[in-house]
Structure formats: structure tokens, C-alpha cells
Amino acid sequence: MAKGRVSIVVEHCKSCGFCVEFCPSHVLALSSAFNSKGYHPPHAVHPEKCSGCDLCGMYCPDFAIFATKTPGAKEGDK
């Protein structure tokens, strides 16, 4: 069970790539799909690696991504 879960508000994303670049566990990648403004929002390619640290949420200039800790996940769980 992953320690955290990343949520993406697809319509707010402007595909700057900050979250993809600075995620410490490399959970994210820009997808090839478009949102309605024509940007490529990120998606979680390795959701099981997410630690819920919310660094993606702090870097996001568009308030379009955030991560939450999974309640009940133990330290050391993958």
C-alpha cells in the first residue's frame, strides 16, 4: 500500500513540469493527453512510490496537484 496518494486537478494544469522534475520519488510524468486548454497534465506513472510528501503541491504554480498521506499506511511500506 502506497504511503501517499497524489491528486491532480487536470483543468488547472499548465504543464510547466515542475512536479515531474522535482518529485523526489519520480512518481509523475507528463501525459500525452490534453486538457481543455491544450496542456498536457501530469499523471502518476508509479503511484505505489508516492510518499505523500506534498512537494509537488508546494512547487505547483497553478495549485493543480497535491499529495496526501494515506491514513493507516505504516512507515516502511512501499
Binding site: 491528486s7 491532480i8 486537478v9 503541491g57 497535491f66
Partner: peptide, 9 residues
């Protein structure tokens, strides 16, 4: 992901 989106802190 849209469905999962909760509330940004």
C-alpha cells in the same frame, strides 16, 4: 484522477 481529487490544502 479527477474523481480522486480531494481538496487542496
Amino acid at each position: 484522477d479527477i474523481v480522486n481529487a480531494g481538496v487542496n490544502p
